[in-house]
């Protein structure tokens, strides 16, 4: 996938050109779509932050917590990986109020997506942490470090770099999943697209623009994560680990 951005940029330019050329009313629809795009980006960012937090908390609890906490982490991970994102979204939207918790739809959206992707992220974190060699843990025991010190100073810094590419994929998954929030009345990009499609019937044009927008954000995420990876690799380890 080394040339992914290149390929994708080419299609992006091609499709955008095609759509603009064929779509006379393009300018009329752009403001509305951009408004929706802003909401999509907002939810993606909020969801990503929450997902990272949930993933680390859940993974570390599952690996190192005392059994009740470990059990909770396992239940969280299994439930959110085992059911569908849309079901989770609807559950938080329709059922949470019955507990007396009424949240803004936007909050529900960020919560649902963050929790959902966080559960998948927990397995990424767990995988990367368990991939750090046993010798590193043994060295920390020999140096009389506590487990918390070993984790914070020795193991996590080494686990972070290999974690970055899978996190990039998860952020793209999250971006794609944000389209579901249109089904709980949030005016994101997908919602705006349906709205405009219902009034204008310019299906090909509207949905093409929208798809290309999602693609553009996905490419942006890929590029950002790749530079983050390069930066982190330079900062944390010179060359391959022994």
């Amino acid at each position: 996938m080394a040339h992914r951005p290149l390929v994708v940029c080419a299609i992006l330019a091609f499709t955008a050109g095609l759509v603009i050329a064929s779509f006379a009313g393009f300018r009329e629809f752009l403001p509305g779509l951009l408004e929706g795009a802003l909401v999509t980006v907002e939810i993606t960012l909020g969801g990503s932050v929450l997902a990272v937090i949930c993933a680390f908390v859940a993974a570390l609890s599952k690996m190192f917590g005392p059994w009740p906490i470990r059990g909770l982490a396992v239940v969280y991970i299994e439930i959110f990986r085992g059911t569908s994102a849309l079901v989770q979204l609807f559950w938080l939207f329709f059922v949470l109020p019955r507990f007396g918790i009424t949240l803004e739809p936007l909050t529900v959206a960020i919560l649902a997506l963050g929790l959902n992707v966080g559960a998948y992220g927990a397995e990424v974190v767990r995988g990367a942490v368990s991939a750090v060699s046993r010798g590193q843990w043994e060295a920390t025991v020999a140096l009389n470090m506590s487990r918390a010190q070993a984790l914070r100073r020795i193991v996590l810094p080494q686990a972070l770099v290999p974690m970055i590419p899978p996190w990039g994929n998860l952020f793209i998954e999250l971006l794609k999943t944000t389209a579901l929030v249109s089904l709980i009345t949030i005016s994101d990009l997908a919602f705006k697209a349906q709205e405009m499609n219902a009034t204008t019937y310019r299906t090909v044009e509207i949905f093409s623009i929208v798809l290309v927008f999602y693609l553009a954000v996905a490419v942006l995420i890929t590029v950002a994560m790749r530079s983050l990876e390069r930066f982190a690799a330079r900062g944390l380890a010179r060359g391959p680990a022994q």
């Binding site: 994708v8 389209a179 697209a193 999602y214 693609l215």
Partner: peptide, 8 residues
Amino acid sequence: RSTPLLIQ
């Protein structure tokens, strides 16, 4: 792969 299933 990079765009939402719902839109598709």
